[in-house]
């Protein structure tokens, strides 16, 4: 079992190195995309700077919590698509019948296809996440450790969610727009203080669109050092992976290969 895990981890490592090498073939594009995403995140943050210039807090969140929220979401999102760069493309890949390559090789199809691509935009998210954390002023080892653990779990939830929505293409033909729209909803809701949402919407954010586990819950984990909440976050990540696996497995039986020409880049 351990040997198997080591082999799979080595394979993922090889894919990531190959992706980096592939992206580095076009250094200028790589850097401009990364910088572009960093600026994009920064512009979004300006809204909150203006807000807190006029108001003290919003539902228990002050500017420090907003910094922490952005740091976790950006780093988690960045990690997700640095490694699983094909998760946002899964809907289109399924719709166009582009899974053949992965199905002919002796590797678990889902991780292989998710990790086969790296999105250079995500470098901007990663950098933004780290810099945003520096503004929170939490430099004790426990906080940093919890922050990093939360970012990894958020990454798992984001990638799994995006890929699960993408799997709907197996059932409805083409779920590209749904996938894009719901992923946008996930990231948008996660970037607001959780206390703003009550009742039915709050329930949705803890279940169907798990934005609470991407934003509000991890912020509370780092703030309160609550291991119980960290466990809940890990549970949410595990459920996300499980749901993705089940949906993908069922969907694959309905897969229809296409005749479109495509390349691995």
């Amino acid at each position: 079992m351990l040997k198997r895990l080591r082999v799979e981890a080595g394979f993922v490592g090889k894919l990531v190195r190959l992706n980096l090498a592939s992206n580095m073939e076009y250094r200028a594009t790589f850097l401009t995309q990364a910088i572009g995403m960093f600026i994009n995140n920064g512009i979004y943050f300006v809204f909150w700077l203006l807000f807190f210039d006029r108001f003290e807090e919003i539902r228990g969140y002050q500017i420090e919590q907003i910094f922490l929220l952005f740091a976790i979401v950006a780093l988690g999102w960045g990690l997700a698509f640095t490694f699983a760069g094909n998760a946002p493309r899964l809907a289109q890949m399924v719709a166009e019948g582009r899974l053949d390559y992965y199905l002919t090789l002796p590797r678990p199809v889902l991780p292989h296809l998710l990790f086969t691509r790296m999105d250079p935009f995500t470098m901007g998210d990663l950098t933004f996440g780290v810099i945003a954390y520096l503004f929170t002023g939490r430099f004790d080892v426990i906080s940093i450790g919890l922050f990093l653990a939360c970012a990894v779990l958020v990454a798992v939830i984001c990638a799994s969610f995006y890929a699960t929505i993408g799997c709907l293409s197996f059932f409805v033909g083409n779920a590209t727009q749904w996938s894009f729209g719901l992923a946008n909803a996930l990231v948008t809701f996660s970037l607001y203080p959780l206390g703003l949402f009550q009742g039915g919407i709050r329930l949705v954010l803890f279940t169907v669109i798990p934005a609470a586990f991407v934003g509000g819950v991890p912020v509370e984990v780092v703030e309160t050092h609550s291991l119980m909440l960290l466990g809940a976050l890990a549970g949410a990540a595990a459920i996300s992976v499980l749901v993705l696996n089940v949906v993908f497995r069922i969907g694959l039986r309905r897969y229809e290969s296409g005749s479109a020409i495509h390349v691995n880049i």
Binding site: S22, S259, H262, N264, I265
Partner: peptide, 12 residues
Amino acid sequence: VFGQKPQLWYHL
């Protein structure tokens, strides 16, 4: 080998 679906990485 699928003539229209390369397995080689395009940029490498």
